[in-house]
């Protein structure tokens, strides 16, 4: 019993909750206005796109893979929405088309990884450049603007007291958690991350899993792109620039091992929350953008060191 409680305490998630608690308390002491609900709700609009992409990224990293192309898929999907809208296509169709583009981009990643047996790091590094290049090429780097209010509501409006994107995120997390919890899908992902070869020999269709996950990642990136276009009322080829770094940082801070097989979606969500609050507070309180990178770096190092120690602890306790 005691052992069980101890094990629960030494989880990365517990550590993250404690860390977030300490940070929020400190932030509240420094600047009470930062913790007001209205402020938090408004600032949260900056993070939902990252949070949405973090869901598939967590699953992919759990299988010991990675997807560096998410930001570029965002750019390509954003510009698809924008250019089709400019050509006079109704917005629902333009958005659907951009989701299809995202799905196809993700599928292509998965196909290369499973059929060509190329490491995900290499192939998504390549498609990161290729998708961005396509986006810049198709659009000639010209932004599209002037979307109707009915569309920008998706990114700027509220629905039942929260930004629309927050609901999208909540629904996605709900579905994925439900699928992961004690179901074959979840077990399979962890198994692939622990030992892909053994999982393959045990009869699991590893390739099908991987293609699904990378396709899901493409879809989520495209969804984030549509929300982003609506929020900023601008579709441009450099949408989502650097997104992959933010997402991967959040997931790793959330305790998901980059070597696969370890970590949880809840942890990754806490990681997203942690870096979001840190980012916003640093520019809220100190008005110094350069401190942001420093704070993010410190957080990442701290979190990785702690988790290493926690795993050590766990390993010796079991």
């Amino acid at each position: 019993m005691k052992q069980r409680i101890l094990n629960m305490i030494w989880q990365p998630e517990t550590f993250l909750i404690v860390l977030i608690g300490i940070l929020l308390t400190a932030m509240g002491r420094l600047d009470a206005s930062f913790l007001q609900w209205e402020v938090q709700r408004a600032l949260s609009s900056h993070v939902w796109e990252l949070a949405i992409i973090a869901i598939p990224m967590t699953l992919i990293i759990l299988t010991a893979g990675i997807d560096l192309s998410v930001g570029s898929v965002m750019g390509l999907s954003a510009i698809t929405t924008g250019m089709l809208f400019q050509k006079g296509l109704p917005l629902p169709l333009a958005c659907s088309a951009s989701l299809l583009v995202g799905i196809f981009c993700g599928f292509l990643n998965g196909w290369f990884i499973t059929r060509m047996k190329v490491h995900p790091l290499i192939i998504t590094l390549a498609t990161m450049a290729a998708y961005r290049g396509m986006a810049e090429g198709i659009s000639h780097a010209k932004p599209v603007s002037g979307f109707p209010d009915s569309f920008t509501w998706l990114g700027q409006g509220d629905w039942f007291g929260l930004p629309v994107a927050a609901w999208v995120f909540a629904v996605m997390v709900g579905i994925v958690l439900w699928m992961m919890h004690g179901r074959a899908f979840g077990v399979g992902i962890y198994a692939i991350g622990h030992n892909e070869t053994a999982t393959r020999f045990s009869g699991l269709r590893v390739d099908r899993y991987l293609v699904t996950l990378y396709t899901f990642s493409g879809f989520a990136s495209a969804l984030a792109a549509v929300l982003f276009v609506a929020r900023r009322n601008t579709a441009k080829a450099d949408a989502g620039m650097g997104m992959e770094l933010g997402v991967i940082t959040a997931v790793v801070i959330g305790g998901v091992s980059i070597f696969g097989g370890r970590g949880t979606l809840i942890g990754a969500c806490l990681g997203v929350l942690l870096i979001h609050e840190t980012r916003e507070f640093v520019s809220w309180h100190w008005n110094r953008d350069e401190l942001n990178l420093l704070a993010l770096g410190i957080l990442l190092i701290l979190s990785v060191v702690f988790q290493k120690l926690l795993r050590h602890k766990q390993g010796s306790a079991i």
């Binding site: 609009s45 900056h46 900023r232 650097g242 520019s283 953008d289 990178l293």
Partner: peptide, 14 residues
Amino acid sequence: TDGSPEKQASMIEQ
């Protein structure tokens, strides 16, 4: 620090 217009917009919102 990276010249991103999105960040400019976020700052204005803050």
